[in-house]
Each structure stands twice: as structure tokens, then as C-alpha cells.
């Protein structure tokens, strides 16, 4: 049954037309709306393809053999794509190709989506200023997008995606070019966004375990596990070749378990675990 309050993927398989091998095999997953879902997996696991399907790029712009069913709340990328697209923000893997290619300044670039949505000029001013402040781009507003560094460019790409206040935010490896501090700030900032479902592909397993409500784990096109970061990380198999958070590595080597053989995967859990050990 389709549930209007959750994301559900049902028996999803996909093969690109130029390829004889399927990229995704019979994926089924669910997560509540307004949560943060981390998508992890090895190289060529199909993470980007899954993002493309969720955003409706497949099958609306790229063709292939798609079967199964995807539902994001009340909308489906295959059936009501225009309506879904209006409420979705997407950040591509390569931030440079996210740009419109037609803006003289960072401010114009951020305003592009709002203009397309027919937002009034005073409101555009307000929202551009606000988003630039959130992503620390205020100092760059008057500069050309081509003059930005890799990390700034990624923040600009994110700014263009969130300026329309989307209900669903799909981020395909959005921090690959940020420095460690910028990355941490970015992940912390994700947690304060409200009323938005965030699907984020990332290799930053430490940061993901800090913020994600759920993890979906893909290996070679199959969804091998899903659940809270605590569950997923503790059930990893070595041949999946997925990295583990430093907190987890430390806790394992020190044998600081949360009881029942589960080891903490983020700082909060570690703190709780140590607190328990001291008090007993």
C-alpha cells in the first residue's frame, strides 16, 4: 500500500539502454518523510542511478529498462514528475555542471530557480540573502561563479537546490571538494533544516552516522541492508568493503559496547556508552 507519509521503493530494477547489465536489482526500501537518509555503498554500487530515479531524471531524461515502483510521499517520479520536480532540490556530483552557465554573479545564479518559479523580485532578494548567509556565500554574492573554489562551488550548488525550499532534497556526494571543516559545518547544518526529506549519498561515513536517521546500504546494485546507522554499521560484512566510523573502530578496539554486542557509531552514542560504564 502506498503510504503518503513515507518514501517507499518497491522491487526496483533498472538497466541503462547502452548496457546489458542491470545497475539496480530488485531494491525495496522505506523511510519516513522528513528524515535524513544516508545512501552508502562501494564504487559502482548504483548510488547515483538511485538518485537519478528518485529525482525523475530516469526515466524522464535518460531511458532504460525500469521496473518496480517508487513513491515519495504522495508523488511518484514516474507518474507525476513535473509536480515532484517542483518540490525537489537536487545536487549533482559535479557542482560545476549544476550552474546555469548564464549568470554573471553568484547572486544571479541562486536567483535562477526562483525566477523560473515565478517568485516576485522582493522575495527573491530576501531568499537569496538568506540562503547565502546559511551557506557562507555572502562575501561571494557579487563574484562570478567561475571564480569560486571547489568547496565554494559545491556550496553554491547546494544553495541553488535549497533556495526554492524543496520538500525533498537529493544530494549526490555534495561534499567531495570541501575541506574537513567546511564538511563538518555542512553536515551539522543539514540537521537544522526542517520539514525536508534529505537523501544524501556520501562516503563520509563518520559524518553520516552523526546525522542520518537511516542508512541504505547498496552493494553491486543490491540493497543489502537498511536501518539506523547503529544497526547497519554493526551488521557490516567484511566483503562489502564499506568503511566504518572512527568512533566505531575505537569502541570495538576498546570493547566499549552498548550491551547486546552493539558498538556505538557516533559521538553521542559513545558518550552514552562511556557514561553508562562510569556509572556502573
Amino acid at each position: 500500500m502506498a503510504n503518503n507519509q513515507q518514501i517507499s521503493i518497491n522491487d526496483l530494477s533498472f538497466t541503462y539502454r547502452h548496457d546489458s547489465n542491470a545497475v539496480l536489482h530488485h531494491i525495496s526500501a522505506t523511510a519516513p518523510l522528513n528524515s535524513i537518509i544516508g545512501i552508502i555503498g562501494n564504487h559502482h554500487a548504483g548510488k547515483t542511478t538511485l538518485c537519478r530515479i528518485l529525482a525523475g531524471i530516469i526515466p524522464n531524461m535518460m531511458a532504460g529498462d525500469l521496473s518496480g515502483d517508487v513513491q515519495l510521499g504522495p508523488l511518484s517520479p514516474t507518474q507525476n514528475w513535473p509536480a515532484l520536480n517542483q518540490q525537489t532540490g537536487f545536487v549533482l556530483q559535479d557542482p560545476a555542471s549544476q550552474l546555469s552557465g548564464l549568470a554573471d554573479t553568484v547572486a544571479d545564479e541562486i536567483a535562477f530557480d526562483l525566477l523560473n518559479h515565478g517568485v516576485a523580485n522582493t522575495e527573491i532578494q530576501h531568499r537569496v540573502t538568506e540562503v547565502a548567509r546559511q551557506l557562507q556565500l555572502t562575501g561571494q554574492l557579487q563574484r562570478s561563479p567561475n571564480s569560486l573554489s571547489g568547496g565554494q562551488l559545491q556550496r553554491l550548488a547546494i544553495a541553488t537546490a535549497i533556495v526554492t525550499k524543496p520538500a525533498i532534497l537529493i544530494l549526490d556526494d555534495p561534499t567531495s571538494e570541501m575541506d574537513p571543516q567546511g564538511r563538518t559545518e555542512f553536515f551539522n547544518w543539514l540537521t537544522i533544516i526542517e520539514k525536508t526529506t534529505i537523501l544524501i549519498v556520501s562516503n563520509e561515513i563518520d559524518d553520516l552516522c552523526e546525522i542520518a536517521d537511516r542508512l541504505w546500504l547498496l552493494v553491486d546494485g543490491e540493497l543489502v541492508n537498511q536501518g539506523t546507522p547503529l544497526e547497519v554499521i554493526n551488521q557490516l560484512k567484511p566483503d562489502w568493503q564499506i568503511g566504518t566510523p572512527q568512533v566505531y573502530q575505537l569502541a570495538r578496539s576498546m570493547n566499549w559496547s552498548l550491551g547486546t554486542d552493539l558498538f556505538p557509531v557516533n559521538v553521542n552514542q559513545l558518550r552514552g556508552c562511556l557514561h553508562d560504564r562510569h556509572s556502573t
Binding site: 541503462y16 539502454r17 547502452h18 531524461m61 535518460m62
Partner: peptide, 12 residues
């Protein structure tokens, strides 16, 4: 040219 590229422009 990769086939995916040829397909993309043909499909769109």
C-alpha cells in the same frame, strides 16, 4: 563517443 551519450541526445 560512448553509447550512453549518443542515446541521450537521440532520446531527448
Amino acid at each position: 563517443l560512448p553509447q550512453r551519450m549518443i542515446n541521450y541526445f537521440k532520446d531527448n
